[in-house]
Structures are given as structure tokens and as C-alpha cells.
């Protein structure tokens, strides 16, 4: 095990896959100088400009070219810089990448990975802060990945690169510098397998991406009051580990879904609905969704903070559900 940042762990995973398979290549704006967050730093020297490829500011063509290149047997890793900019490439992702295999009757595979950094950090405002993961879970054909730790960012990225499905790979910008232990060598984290970060009997808290860390903080606060929360990091939203979530709620009888994204039509709604449909009789309290209000993210900190779900809010919601 080595201690690495979330950014470096992804870099290690990508580099390993590029060494293993000559058909893996990365393309995006400013990759040659390391990518805007340094997540490709130094890779040009090892792999050269054809495989760590700069691109014009042409998001539709970056994505569309990746579709064509993937159908022709290469494995492009596409960098979109911010998930916000990936909206310029929605046709290419949703109508082309996600549909090609199905609408051509199984003739095509589109093994591309699109990296779309999500989330708030500080004062990046409405067009550089969004968490749009739930949009893609609605699209048949796509895989949606939201890693929360350095180890997962390596292991899930490697799995994504080896997948024959198009994968929307959403790293959280606030996590780039976060350090953690990362297994060396072929560390592969499968899709659809949640990570139970903490076991508990009183309430299940389901989350993903950076919000997971706030859930863990909330769980520590709750433990001081004698409430034992089970914290589940979904890791991937499609496929999502329904069995693990249901098993946990069956035990605790209570569910909180905590997400950084806007709550309305967020992926939390899918989890809440599934749990209500399946475990209505086992629930000791109504399910609780926590997410951002339906406001764009602001620039000024007091306004921006209104879009955040805090550890205190999660703890308060859990306390209310447990009835203390």
C-alpha cells in the first residue's frame, strides 16, 4: 500500500492500463501539460502526444471522436474538464455512445470512459460546480461511477477502462488532494458493489462521492449520542448495489440518502423509491432525502453554502428519524 492523493491514484490506474493495453489513450484539452487538475501530470513524457493527446476546445468532437475511435477498437479516456462542459457533448454521449450497441443490434461496442469532474469546491459558481450524475443514470447504456477515495479512484478507473460499456466517470473536484492508502498493482473495484464504511444498527445512510466524507463525520457525531449509523458508499450509481442497501435498511429500519446534487430528481429519489417499494413494512420511519435546494450554485460563500448538505444536517436528520 502506498499513500496517494485521489488525483495521483487515478493517474496510477490510467498509467497501468495504458502500459497493459496499447489501445488505451487519453484525449482532452490541455492534457499535455498535465490536465487542469494535474491528474495527467508527467504522463506525456511516458506515453507521447498521440496517447496523451491534446484536443481543440471542441467538446462535441472530443466525445464524438471517442465514439468513433471506440467503435474502431481503441479505448479512449475522454477528459471533459468539468461535468458542466460535458453538456456541450450530450448528443455524442446520450444519442450516440449510449445507443450504438443497442440500435445497431449488437454490432457495436463503445468502450469509452468520459471523465467529468463534478462538485463544489470554493467560489466556482453556477457553471463550474454542478453534480449532474443523476442525469446519466437515466440513460440506458451508460455506466455511472462516483468514486469517493483514492483507492476507489484507482480501482474503479481501471475497471471503467476495461469495461466494454461507455462509462461516465465523475471525480469530485474537492477530493483531488485527499490522501489515502492505495493498493499497488492490479487493484480492480467492480461496478455495482457498495462499500460499507461503517456498520450500525440504528439508521442506514447512503451516499456517494465527496458527500460520503460528510456522512462519516455525521456518523461520528451520532455515535457520541449513542446512535449507530451504517454508512454505505455506493461507488457506482449505475449499476447500484440495491441488495446491499436493502439488506442494511432491513436491519436498521431507517434510511437517509445524502447527496451533494440538487435533491429534486436526484439519484437519492431512486434509492428512496426503491426502498419504499420494497421494504415498506420494515420501515420504522419514513425515508429521508437530503440534497441541495433547487438553486444554482453561487459565488459568494454564504450563498454558496446554502447549496451544501452539511454533516450537522445529516446528523440532525438521523437523530430525528431515530426519535431522540
Amino acid at each position: 500500500m502506498a499513500i496517494m492523493t485521489y488525483a495521483d491514484a487515478a493517474k496510477a490506474g490510467l498509467a497501468e492500463e495504458m502500459r497493459r493495453d496499447p489501445h488505451v489513450w487519453a484525449v482532452g484539452e490541455d492534457l499535455g501539460r498535465g490536465g487542469v487538475f494535474g491528474q495527467y501530470g508527467g504522463m506525456l513524457a511516458e506515453f507521447g502526444p498521440e496517447r496523451i493527446s491534446d484536443a481543440p476546445i471542441s467538446e462535441a468532437c472530443i466525445m464524438g471522436a471517442a465514439v468513433g475511435a471506440a467503435m474502431m477498437g481503441t479505448r479512449p479516456v475522454v477528459e471533459m474538464r468539468f461535468s458542466d462542459f460535458a453538456l456541450c457533448a450530450i448528443d455524442e454521449l446520450v444519442n450516440q455512445a449510449a445507443k450504438a450497441r443497442y440500435m445497431f443490434g449488437g454490432q457495436a461496442r463503445v468502450p469509452l470512459v468520459v471523465r467529468e469532474p463534478i462538485g463544489m469546491w470554493r467560489s466556482s459558481a453556477a457553471q463550474h460546480s454542478q453534480s449532474l450524475e443523476s442525469w446519466y443514470t437515466h440513460i440506458p447504456g451508460l455506466v455511472v461511477v462516483c468514486p469517493s477515495s483514492p483507492a476507489d479512484n484507482k480501482g474503479l478507473l481501471k475497471t471503467a477502462i476495461r469495461s466494454d460499456d461507455p462509462v461516465v466517470y465523475m471525480e469530485h473536484k474537492g477530493l483531488w488532494p485527499v490522501e489515502g492508502e492505495v493498493p499497488e498493482g492490479d487493484h480492480l473495484v467492480p461496478f455495482g458493489k457498495a462499500n460499507v464504511l461503517r456498520e450500525g444498527r440504528d439508521v442506514t445512510i447512503v451516499s456517494w462521492s465527496a458527500q460520503v466524507h460528510l456522512c462519516m463525520k455525521a456518523a461520528e457525531q451520532l455515535a457520541k449520542d449513542g446512535i449507530e449509523a451504517e454508512v454505505i458508499d455506493l461507488r457506482t450509481l449505475w449499476p447500484w448495489d440495491k441488495d446491499r442497501v436493502l439488506a442494511s435498511v432491513e436491519k436498521t429500519g431507517r434510511l437517509i440518502v445524502a447527496q451533494e446534487a440538487v435533491s429534486v430528481s436526484g439519484f437519492g429519489a431512486e434509492i428512496a423509491a426503491t426502498v419504499s417499494e420494497t421494504l415498506h413494512g420494515a420501515l420504522k420511519a419514513p425515508v429521508k432525502r437530503l440534497g441541495a435546494p433547487r438553486i444554482p450554485v453561487s459565488y459568494a460563500p454564504p450563498l454558496e453554502d446554502k447549496a451544501r448538505v452539511t454533516a450537522d444536517q445529516i446528523a440532525a436528520a438521523a437523530t430525528a428519524l431515530v426519535g431522540r
Partner: peptide, 29 residues
């Protein structure tokens, strides 16, 4: 695909960027 015909397209202009990518793969290989 057996004869290299990688698809008609229901979205006008969408095949142009896909074609660029198909060319890109040929060059890389």
C-alpha cells in the same frame, strides 16, 4: 459492421465527429 458500414444516423451532422474519431483510431493503430 461486417462491410465497414458503421451506421446511418438519426441526428443530422452527428456522423461527422464520429467519422473523425474512426479516422483517429486508424491513425493510432
Amino acid at each position: 459492421f461486417g462491410v465497414g458500414m458503421l451506421g446511418a444516423n438519426g441526428v443530422v451532422s452527428a456522423n461527422i465527429v464520429i467519422a473523425a474519431g474512426a479516422g483517429h483510431a486508424i491513425k493510432l493503430k
